[in-house]
Design a protein around this nucleic acid. Structure first.
Ligand SMILES: NC(=O)c1ccc[n+]([C@@H]2O[C@H](COP(=O)([O-])OP(=O)(O)OC[C@H]3O[C@@H](n4cnc5c(N)ncnc54)[C@H](O)[C@@H]3O)[C@@H](O)[C@H]2O)c1
Ligand SMILES: NC(=O)c1ccc[n+]([C@@H]2O[C@H](COP(=O)([O-])OP(=O)(O)OC[C@H]3O[C@@H](n4cnc5c(N)ncnc54)[C@H](O)[C@@H]3O)[C@@H](O)[C@H]2O)c1
Lengths: 251, 251
DNA sequence: TACCGCTTGTGAACGCATGCACAAAGTCGA
DNA sequence: TCGACTTTGTGCATGCGTTCACAAGCGGTA
C-alpha cells in the first residue's frame, strides 16, 4: 500500500460502474465480521491486552487468519509487521468505519413478549444504541414504562421519531401489522429497520432492512439434521428422494 | 506458521472431489431461501391458492425470479412449463428437503428476558418445533411453568434432553455462561444449537451452530447509515481518512 | 393435429468471497 | 549496525452464488 499511486483501487477498472456504486468498497460479509472483531477486541482491551496478532484475533473471532487480515485491509493498514495490531487503534478505526462514533437512537415497535425483552436488554445502550422510544397499539400498555422508557401509542410515531432522532426502528409486532408499521417508520424518516416479524417487507431503495427470522434459523438447522440422518443411513445422495417416479433420465 | 518456500509446487490439488461430498448439492444460501419460499407458499395454500408461477412466488419472497427457479431446481423439477408450480406439491417437497416431516424438539436454556419471550412464543410449535424443555440456574425459576413448560435446573439437562429427544438447543444465557451451556448441550447429544449470546462458541465438527447476534445486526445498519451520510456529504469514498483531523475541513 | 404463447429448467458468464502463499516491512538481539 | 525472525498486507487462483438468456416442454386453441 506504501508506494501506491493515487489510484485508490488497484483493480483494473471495468468499463464504467456507476460512481456512486464505488462506495460499497467493503463487502457486506466483511462488515458483519468487523463487528465481531470489534467485540473480541473490546473484551481484550477490558482485560488490559494492548496488542494482538491476526492469528490470535482470528481465533477469538472464529475465522481464518488470512480472512481477518483481508477484512482489516479494507479499512486501512493499521498493523505493524512483525508485531501485530494495537488493540485500541484497531478498536477506534473499526468504530469509525461502522459509524459507532456517534449514537444511534433506537425505537422498538410492538411491546409484546419480544418487545419487552428488547426494551429491557441492557446490552444495546452500552454499545451506542440507546433505546429511546417504544410504541404499541395496546391501550393497556400506553404510558407504562418498560426498561425505563414509557410506551407511546403508535400514532405518535412520526412526531416522536423525529423529535428523538430515531435512526433505527425495530419491528416486533405480529406479522400482519409489520408492513404498516414499517411504512410508518419510513414516513417518520427512519432509514434502518430491524425486522423480527416473519414477513418480507417492502421498502424504498433508500431504506435498509435486516431481518431476524428465527423460524428460518430453526429450519436451516433442521435441514442439517435431515442431511446428517440421510448420510448416516447411506442414502447416497440425490435430492430427488421420494423416488416414486421422480427419477427420470439424467444422462 | 509461515509457509516454507520449499513447497513451490503446492498447488494443493484436491486430487479427488470426494463423491460423497457431492451431497451438499444445495448451497446454504439456497436453504435459507427455501424456508422463506415455504412460508410464502403456506400462506398461499391457506388462502386457497393452488398454483403459482416463479414470478409470483419470487415477488412474495422478495427475490429474483431466476434465483428462485434455480433454488427450486436444487430439489428437483416439480413445476409444469407454461403453467407454474402446484402449491401443495412444492410445499411437501420443500418440507421434505428441510427435514420438516418430523418434529424437532427444542430446549431453551436461560429463561431470562429473552428466554421467556421464546418460551411464550406460539410460532414454533405450529411449525414443527415444539419447545419441550426449559433450563436455568436461578432457583427462583425452577419449577415455574413458562409457556406451559416447567423450568428445570441446568444440572438435569443431560437426562431431560435425552429423554425428550431434544434435537435443537437454544442458548439465551448471559455471555459468560454460553460456552459451558453449549458444552453441556453437546454432551447431552444435541447437535444443533441456536445461540443468542454474543460469544463465539467452540463446538465439535458434528455440531451445527447458528448465531443470532442483534448487536452485529445493529452495527451493520449503523455502517449503512454512516456510509449514506458520507456519500451525502460528498466525501469521496476513501476508507482511510482517519476522521480525527480529517473532519476538520473538506477540500 | 399443428401451432402458439407461456413458463420452467439450466448452461454459461459474471462477480464476490475465500484461502493460499509470499514479498515487504517491521522488531529484536547481538 | 546487521541479520534473523516475525507478522502484515495483498496478488492470485479457486470456488460459490447470482444473473442472464434461451431452448425445451406444456396447455390451450384453431
Ligand atoms: N417471541 C418470540 O420469541 C418470537 C420469536 C420469533 C419471532 N417472533 C416474531 O416477533 C413478533 C413479535 O412477537 P411477540 O411474541 O412479541 O408477539 P406479541 O403478540 O407478544 O406482541 C406483539 C405486540 O405488538 C403489538 N401490536 C400489534 N399490532 C400493532 C401495531 N399495528 N402497531 C404497534 N404495535 C402493535 C401488540 O399490542 C403486542 O403488544 C411476531 O411477528 C413474531 O412472529 C417472536
Ligand atoms: N434480551 C434481549 O433482547 C437480548 C438481545 C440481544 C442479545 N441478548 C443476549 O441473550 C442472552 C440472554 O439475554 P437476556 O436479556 O434474556 O438475559 P437475562 O439476564 O434476562 O437472562 C439470562 C438468564 O440466564 C440464566 N442463566 C445464567 N447462567 C446460566 C447457566 N449457566 N445456565 C442456565 N441458565 C443460566 C439466568 O438465571 C437468567 O435467567 C444474553 O447473552 C444477551 O446478551 C439478549
Amino acid at each position: 500500500m506504501a508506494a501506491q499511486r493515487g489510484e485508490g483501487e488497484t483493480t483494473t477498472t471495468p468499463a464504467e460502474p456507476a460512481d456512486r456504486e464505488r462506495a460499497r468498497a467493503i463487502p457486506e460479509a466483511a462488515v458483519a465480521r468487523l463487528a465481531v472483531y470489534l467485540r473480541a477486541l473490546s473484551g481484550m482491551a477490558d482485560q488490559g491486552v494492548t496488542a494482538v496478532s491476526s492469528e490470535e484475533l482470528s481465533q477469538a473471532a472464529g475465522v481464518n487468519a488470512a480472512k481477518l487480515r483481508k477484512d482489516l485491509s479494507y479499512i486501512g493498514s493499521y498493523g505493524t509487521r512483525g508485531v501485530g495490531y494495537d488493540v485500541e487503534v484497531l478498536v477506534s478505526h473499526i468504530e469509525r468505519i461502522l459509524g459507532l462514533t456517534r449514537n444511534h437512537s433506537v425505537a422498538v415497535v410492538g411491546i409484546g413478549n419480544l418487545g419487552h425483552a428488547l426494551a429491557n436488554y441492557g446490552g444495546f445502550p452500552g454499545r451506542g444504541f440507546p433505546v429511546t422510544a417504544l410504541f404499541d397499539v395496546d391501550a393497556d400498555l400506553i404510558g407504562i414504562p418498560v426498561g425505563g422508557i414509557p410506551v407511546n401509542h403508535i400514532d405518535e410515531i412520526t412526531a416522536i421519531c423525529l423529535e428523538r432522532e430515531v435512526s433505527i426502528g425495530v419491528i416486533a409486532t405480529p406479522p400482519p401489522a409489520a408492513q404498516s408499521v414499517c411504512d410508518r417508520l419510513v414516513s417518520a424518516g427512519v432509514q434502518c429497520i430491524l425486522n423480527f416479524a416473519p414477513v418480507v417487507l417492502q421498502v424504498p431503495d433508500n431504506v435498509e432492512v435486516r431481518k431476524v427470522d428465527l423460524a428460518v434459523e430453526m429450519q436451516i438447522l433442521s435441514f442439517h439434521v435431515a442431511r446428517r440422518a440421510d448420510e448416516a443411513a447411506g442414502v447416497s445422495v440425490d435430492n430427488n428422494g421420494l423416488g416414486v417416479d421422480g427419477m427420470v433420465s439424467r444422462p
